[in-house]
């Protein structure tokens, strides 16, 4: 399995993506998955798209990307968190 790159985005690239980034770091550690996490603003996603495998974002991703996009609001509110974790893990073990 090759090491996957996840883009972790929010509007400002400083607040909610920080929380999600940490949660993903822990999730991957827990499941012993080696990943490359890149925290960014949603507007920076296009320029970072090369080599990325997944976008996990708390904001709307209006554009089409060549990789799946998963909404990360659950990491903030706790609502539906297990399902989102499972979806992310499923992408990572592909």
């Amino acid at each position: 399995m090759t090491k996957k790159t996840i883009l972790v985005a929010c509007g400002a690239g400083i607040a909610t993506s920080t929380v999600v980034n940490e949660a993903l770091k822990n999730l991957c550690k827990e499941h012993k998955i080696d990943v490359n996490l890149i925290q960014c603003k949603i507007t920076e996603v296009s320029s970072l798209a090369d080599g990325a495998d997944l976008l996990v974002s708390t904001t709307i991703a209006n554009k089409e990307y060549p990789f799946p996009v998963i909404n990360a609001r659950a990491f903030l509110t706790g609502i539906g968190i297990e399902e989102v974790k499972q979806r992310i893990l499923a992408e990572l073990v592909k």
Binding site: I14, A15, T18, V19, Q39, L76, T77
Partner: peptide, 19 residues
């Protein structure tokens, strides 16, 4: 917030309040 990527503890705890 006055710095990037430096407010992790604070933000994590704020999310605990929100939950």
């Amino acid at each position: 917030m006055d710095q990037k990527h430096s407010q992790l503890k604070l933000l994590t705890r704020l999310m605990q309040v929100i939950q």
